[in-house]
Design a binder for these strands. Structure first.
Lengths: 341, 341
DNA sequence: GTGAAAGCGCTAACAT
DNA sequence: ATGTTAGCGCTTTCAC
């Protein structure tokens, strides 16, 4: 970087540094004439204000941090895009950091953002211990925390309504007449104790008087996992007529399992995914799935963050982001089902 | 942010600011005892060094910029991930900015990065006028420019070998006995004058003595575009036996077109994609396609960038990133072809 | 309307 | 081994 400073501009324009500063920031009175002179000098020297130096005095960096599990995951990258667009419109640059959902890495990412003095942080965190998150929030503000409930004055909560997503999916297949319903769920792990989606499924089943006995098949939440779990479900429940999957990757694996075992989707079995990943519209049959507008999520997250940044006292109520069911072709009415209700 | 500074730590530990600095940066002699004392004070106060302030004096921000077309595009997000991982290992944070391949936005992104005083920039740029890029490079260094040839001492060139990718694809289907070969290409536009992939295809055809007359069908480089172009190709060349597509999205659209018109892939027609996007392994049939290791690309790009950052004098020779053909199931030997050669 | 002085938080260079 | 001085590039405050 060529080291042209405000001093150089001042000399070139024959004014003081302050005058240059005034010309740049358009505040404080300055005669149009000198302003033009300064601007010309800036142009000629190719001067770019040093934001770092500015932030030393303004205590604002015009920078925000986004911490995600993995930017290569389309879910996060869409959120990132929405966030960046709005941030950019407001003159903010954004740092992005990946955690792979590892507690230590999450902690480290937070510290780095703080060291960079970002003006605010949008955080996806599953693994970092609550007390550490709170300890951090005690020294930093504001944080927009997504899909996790940690109460703290410096943390603004925002969550996608997964429960409602499952409810919509369930209602959709229920209304199509399905009664023998299964679910492909993830395996419960250390850092993943309670799946809101699984619990929502259980609640829906219970509410309709359906037993969940032998209806829930856990596996890795991947294509292969979905494939294996579907095979298991098919074996245990040959008559299953509709399956709700934890996510689209599992659903696509399930599609594959159906194909291999000679079942037609949705002819023999209806399948519903969750997430609406890019592939979902391209598989055969195109997948019906519950979706969040991820770009919108990113947008909403920064907008709140920006408000929080601009008002130290502000505290926002937790915000719920709705889901919608994207109806494609993997669900149809139950074939020869006797409607019980 | 709680404003605890090096001064506070110094007071707490009963030493000078400089001593605190020494304890933090582990350089310059310092007695283990005082160092421990300082570290304790840091711990107690929850002090985080202000990187902005540090960079004012070191003239280094520990920050790099990545400018891509669209982070929501899996291609770029994978590159980003590779880049971030390596950058992170070296203590660098990364700013990411999207351009949507718009010249003005690209220019703006560059200026913003410069204003943030990032230590280096990895740039994907198609649209920015060459003279503007050069003008920028005159004031900023280093830049790693990917997939575009602009010669400048401050710009290090890095390009994926698309020509070789097409060559491999072509050779693959040629060796499988195909002779009636078509291509689905993008439409030539303002900012997109010469497709290296299309030119490579033409070259391969010519070299084998094949005419390109009525064999190249342009469309939007999307799923729908591929679908439409394939329909057109099928109409013009009912006997086409293999098709090379500009990218996987077009290839998947082509798959769909084949399905609709009752052609089996690869039974009747072999199809080759380009890019190896995530979906490609999941469609039916799984797509044979030319791939770059995108994570690797990001990795290699930062590694060069870091070298350049650490040596003002260094200048690196242009670097070519190889492609590999990922052989899946959309290509098979030509059915009833008379081998001419 | 413009300039001079002070200082943001830190480290490099030079004392001690 | 530790402290003191100066200054990075900018804006804020207060003179003029």
């Amino acid at each position: 970087m060529k080291g042209v400073t405000i001093e150089d501009v001042a000399r070139e324009a024959g004014v003081s540094r302050q005058t240059v500063s005034r010309a740049i920031n358009d505040k404080g009175e300055i005669s149009p004439k000198t302003k033009a002179k300064v601007l010309a000098a800036i142009q000629q020297l190719g001067y770019t204000p040093n934001l770092q130096a500015r932030s030393m005095v303004t205590q604002r960096t015009s920078t925000i941090g986004l911490i995600v599990g993995d930017i290569a995951n389309p879910y996060f990258s869409s959120v990132a895009r929405g966030l960046q667009d709005i941030a950019g419109q407001h003159g903010y640059s954004v740092f992005i950091s990946n955690t792979d959902e590892n507690a230590d890495v999450e902690h480290q990412a937070l510290k780095t953002m703080a060291a960079q003095r970002v003006d605010g942080i949008v955080l996806f965190s599953h693994e970092l211990a609550e007390e550490k998150l709170i300890a951090f929030a005690n020294t930093y503000r504001p944080i927009v925390l997504i899909n996790r409930a940690v109460t703290h004055p410096n943390i603004h909560l925002m969550a996608v309504d997964h429960v409602d997503g499952i409810r919509q999916s369930f209602t959709h297949i229920w209304d199509a007449g399905h009664r023998n319903i299964g679910m492909l769920s993830p395996v419960q792990s250390e850092g993943f104790k309670n799946s809101r989606r699984l619990n929502a499924f259980k609640a829906e089943m219970k509410q309709r008087g359906l037993s969940i006995e032998n209806k829930i098949f856990p596996a890795q939440s991947t294509f292969d996992g979905g494939h294996a779990a579907m095979l298991a479900l098919l074996k245990a429940q040959p008559d299953v007529s509709a399956v709700i999957c934890y996510n689209d990757r599992m659903a696509i694996g399930a599609l594959q399992a159906c194909r291999e075992t000679g079942r037609s989707v949705p002819g023999d079995i209806s399948i519903v995914g969750f997430d609406n990943i890019r592939v979902s519209g391209m598989v055969t049959p195109p997948l019906t799935t519950a979706a969040v507008d991820r770009y919108e999520l990113g947008r909403v997250a920064v907008e709140s963050l920006l408000k929080l940044i601009n008002d130290d006292e502000l505290s926002l109520a937790p915000r719920v982001i709705p889901m919608q069911l994207v109806e494609r072709e993997s669900v149809t009415v139950a074939p020869t089902q006797v409607l019980v209700n």
